[in-house]
Design a protein around this nucleic acid. Structure first.
Length: 743
RNA sequence: GAACUCGUAGCUCAGUUGGUUAGAGCGCCACAUUGACAUUGUGGAGGCCAGAGGUUCAAGUCCUCUCGAGUUCACCA
């Protein structure tokens, strides 16, 4: 043995050796002797197929693999299930940037072509995440690997949609959705970030019809859609304003009469106690309009510009229009005052940071709190009963808070890269209720109402080049494959599922699409390990959908790891330039050191700082393990008993109990810390010295070392396997398949 | 505005159901070492565990309050 442990001389070869004996497969031959027939399954969070792994993935993999190896050694049928995600919006966004460089955009391509292009692009890098996962030592069963857009997975997602639709848990409706005009898609409430801002509050005068010299004053932050407003509202019991109810004012831009109605949603204390109603662009107003059956006039379109109803302002972007409209109102003397420092909250896009525009769109929604079949209530019940327990520094309460306040989930996205919603709209008889955009056979972009488009283009041409389709709520549709065997004509839905709709089914769509018995054997899975930042996005959705589909929560435990911060405790970010690339650290210090550095003294749900000294310290530990092994091997022929043997064995028994207990209770960071201390400061500092002085027998020292290698193996799989290779009794013995020490 | 988390050695953090002199890494000081390992060893300095009250035989650990830091949600015209 060399006097130093050199990771790159061992790691790849050891991983290959494990793969050669199928060691990551729960049914591998090497486990035949040591099996409890108890399942242990972790579905690994699928990284984006075309992105390199970052340090967050590395912690996750370290924790997942540690628990998997621990369970495997205890004789459980252990399945660590790998996969990758298509990451719809993120991936399409990156791809569109690439198109931009070539002066192209997604509007230059019909959907199948665009989809194919992104597919190919994703394939270019798709092996990277997998090979990096292997470098990090994950004992994942690659024979079961699944990609989110594999046919088998897509099929299950579509079937879930059909089933939920049948159960009325998915419905089509027109609602105000969060729309990002830059990204060109709607989002769920989770993708929206509220930001404080200082803005102007305009006090606008509306002339009374009865007496045009008198005004009703309305405070608003958004004067630009005024021309589309048809009503004002006051609180029915507001003594100051209730006598206005039933009277009319003139729209300051269009001079059309506007009735004043009463509704309790109005806060008499705010502004003047009178509000204008803009149903198409404000959630409260939309609700009031629905209740009072008021017209919903769209003033802003999906590109963020004012619509044709804006007259001379049509085509202006919101902010430009606002300035002009305010200027015009001022000129007419219809601005009473402007509060320049009004504090309010603006909704912004989580991805591009632009202001989110609430727009009325007809989309698919998941009812999460349907009376009599409430998915959120069932999920809360699973938490109450302990069917699923959460490790993560109080974050179960955050999950509960989400579940208690969750609104119906908008699952439609206006992007191409994803699973197309399996819906077909009946065209014939509804030509005027459908608008479409497409590339004609000369690759020219056309859009409009279908009835008009059909005058110059056959339906086949539109179908072939279809980009986007929007059907009114009144258009009948069918779900599944394109309907055949009738005389109707159909066009497909062009929206795709929210990425999280398919990843929300991941524990099921993985296990149901591999070995026939996998689902029965491994569902519910044992543990879900992921960062706390995607608790509502992913963990919550997996629980909602898993409970819907199977009646059981998809995992018994949730382990949430914290963010990895830099050595000074700052958040890592590319702009700060303080990111740590885990693969660079592996190249420098070896996989075992990186894994241990990320895990040691970590606590579920708590952020952790890691810097170069930490990796270095753990690299030193790998070397220490290596050299302790070397020492023991150099002691051949020493006496077989020592006065301290019994004491050492007793101490070792305590250590086994302690480490096993820590891992059982998922105190992984603590287990790693104590192992470090026991190994270094007891075994190396004391025991080895006792061997030198003859108080501890060589034989005993070797047994204790072997036990330490077993205990350390889940954390540091490579160096321990390499040392085991030098100490083992039989030639085909692998540490990965050894039994966990018991007392 | 609400919820959650945190405040322990110079720095970054552990301390599992309350239980002997509060730990680790890095840093600092002194010394040692040609034989497992300098990616080392021995010894040392450095902590009224944010503050105040309370429960208890016993509190870094449980409860209340105060102060400070961070995160998330909500804040409507």
């Amino acid at each position: 043995m060399d006097s130093r442990y050199i990771p790159e001389e061992h790691e790849a070869a050891i991983y290959a050796k494990w793969e050669a004996v199928d060691a990551f497969n729960p049914d591998a031959k090497i486990y035949e002797k040591n099996r409890s027939n108890k399942p242990f399954c972790i579905i690994m969070p699928p990284p984006n197929a075309n992105d390199p792994l970052h340090v967050g993935h590395a912690v996750g993999i370290a924790i997942e693999d540690t628990l998997a190896r621990f369970s495997r050694m205890r004789g459980m049928d252990t399945l660590l299930f790998p996969g990758t995600d298509h990451a719809g919006i993120e991936t399409q966004f990156v791809f569109e940037k690439k198109l931009q460089k070539n002066k192209q955009s997604r509007f230059n391509f019909d959907r199948p072509t665009l989809y194919k292009m992104i597919w190919d692009y994703v394939q270019e890098n798709s092996e990277m995440a997998n090979s990096q996962t292997k470098v990090l030592g994950a004992s994942a069963d690659w024979s079961r690997f699944r990609f989110m857009l594999d046919d088998s997975v897509v099929k299950i997602a579509k079937e879930t949609f059909r089933k939920m639709h049948e159960d009325k848990l998915i419905y089509r409706d027109i609602q105000l959705v969060n729309y990002c005009t830059k990204c060109g898609t709607s989002y769920s409430e989770l993708e929206v970030i509220n930001k404080d801002q200082i803005t102007k509050l305009y006090y606008v005068r509306y002339r009374k019809v009865a007496n045009p010299d008198e005004f009703v004053v309305v405070a608003t932050t958004r004067p630009e859609p005024i021309f589309a407003d048809t009503h004002l509202a006051v609180h029915p019991n507001d003594p100051k304003n209730k006598n206005l109810v039933g009277t009319k004012v003139l729209n300051p831009l269009t001079d059309q009469p506007m009735p004043i109605i009463a509704d309790e949603f109005v806060d008499p204390e705010f502004g003047t106690g009178v509000v204008k109603l803009t149903p198409a662009h404000d959630r409260d107003d939309f609700a009031v309009a629905t209740k009072h059956n008021l017209p919903i006039v769209e003033a802003i379109d999906r590109s963020g510009k004012l619509t044709a109803v804006a007259g001379k302002y049509a085509g202006l972007s919101v902010m430009v229009a606002r300035e002009q409209i305010v200027a015009d109102l001022k000129e007419k003397g219809l601005i009473e005052k402007i509060d320049e420092s009004y504090k309010n909250v603006i909704k912004t896009c989580y991805r591009c940071g632009r202001i989110i525009e609430p727009l009325p769109l007809t989309q698919f929604f998941m009812a999460v709190n349907k009376p009599g079949n409430s998915l959120t209530k069932k999920t809360l019940a699973a938490l109450d009963s302990g069917e699923t327990v959460v490790y993560g520094a109080g974050r179960e309460k955050i999950l509960r808070h989400w579940l208690e306040n969750l609104r119906d989930w908008n699952i439609s996205r206006q992007i191409a890269w994803g699973i197309q919603i399996p819906v077909w709209y009946q065209v014939d008889g509804h030509e005027s209720e459908i608008t479409a955009s497409f590339l004609d056979d000369k690759k020219e972009y056309k859009s409009g109402v279908l009835a008009e488009l059909l005058k110059s283009h056959p339906l086949e041409e539109i179908t072939a080049g279809l980009q986007e389709l929007s059907a009114d709520l009144s258009v009948p549709y069918s779900i599944g494959e394109k309907p055949a065997g009738n005389d109707h004509q159909y066009l497909p839905e062009t929206d795709t599922f929210d990425t999280w709709f398919s990843s929300g089914q991941w524990p099921i769509s993985t296990l149901k699409s591999t070995e026939p018995t996998d689902f029965e054997r491994f569902y519910p899975t044992t543990l879900m390990e992921t960062g706390y930042d995607i608790l509502p996005f992913w963990v919550m959705r997996m629980m909602l959908m898993g409970i819907y589909l199977t009646g059981k929560s998809p995992f018994k435990e949730v382990y949430l790891h914290g963010l990895i911060r830099d050595a000074q405790g700052r958040k890592m970010s590319k702009s700060k330039g303080n990111t740590t690339n885990p693969l660079d650290m592996v190249a420098k210090y070896g996989t075992d050191a990186v894994r241990m550095a990320l895990v040691i003294r970590s606590t579920a749900g708590q952020d952790k700082s890691v810097g170069d000294p930490d990796f270095k310290a753990m690299r030193n530990l790998t070397n220490k393990i290596w050299n302790a092994t070397r020492f023991v091997l150099l002691q051949e022929g020493e006496e077989e008993t020592g006065s301290k043997d019994k004491e050492a064995q007793e101490k070792m028994a305590l250590i086994i109990t302690e480490i096993t207990g820590n891992l059982d209770t998922r105190n992984i960071g603590l287990a790693a810390d104590s192992l470090y201390n026991h190994f270094w400061h007891w075994y190396c500092d004391d025991c080895i010295e006792q061997v030198k002085s003859g108080q501890l027998s060589r034989k005993n020292a070797q047994e204790i070392l072997k036990t330490f290698l077993k205990l350390l193996h889940p954390f540091m799989p490579f160096v321990t396997e390499a040392c085991w290779n030098n100490l083992k009794d039989s030639s085909d013995s692998l540490l990965i398949a050894e039994s966990w020490p018991t007392v």
